[in-house]
């Protein structure tokens, strides 16, 4: 209960959840582009703001589904943000990540893992990369 103090008097989690689903479906789905991704980032930030005041109705400590929903939603918002940020950074198309504005693969710039760390006090995602060790399967162009 400590993570969700009584002072939160905002809305229920489900409204934010529904909107998050819609935003991700519309902008961060199969076909992506910078406009859509930036748009999604802006909207996710708004939802994160609303989330700060999200309300927990159930104060019980026995199988509290409501609290679970609120905690899960918090994680979903953070994940949605880094998924979108990662897609925006990766200005190329690779595997299941397809950018309408960058339809070619770019090994020069992007043959690495995209990672984020939310370790700071404000939990702002911080971007970093890691090199790829290529073993059995060489990266190849997708031709289908």
């Amino acid at each position: 209960m400590e993570v969700c103090p009584n002072t939160r008097t905002g809305e229920n989690p489900n409204g934010i959840l529904g909107q998050l689903q819609q935003i991700m479906m519309d902008n961060v789905s199969v076909f992506r582009n910078a406009d859509g991704l930036n748009n999604a980032l802006k909207k996710i930030a708004e939802l994160k703001d609303r989330y700060k005041k999200v309300k927990v109705v159930d104060k019980g400590n026995c199988f509290n589904r409501n609290l679970l929903d609120v905690l899960e939603l918090g994680h979903m918002l953070e994940l949605a943000e880094v998924i979108t940020l990662g897609a925006l950074k990766r200005e190329e198309s690779r595997g299941a990540h397809y950018r309408e504005d960058f339809s070619k693969r770019d090994d020069e710039k992007f043959l690495h893992h995209t990672l984020f760390r939310c370790s700071g006090k404000d939990r702002e995602p911080e971007y970093f990369t890691k090199s790829v060790s290529i073993t059995r399967f060489e990266p190849k162009e997708r031709k289908y």
């Binding site: 229920n12 489900n14 159930d58 409501n66």
Partner: peptide
Amino acid sequence: IRWEHDPTLAY
């Protein structure tokens, strides 16, 4: 039901 009526319903 959980989303629209009663968020305390446990299952």
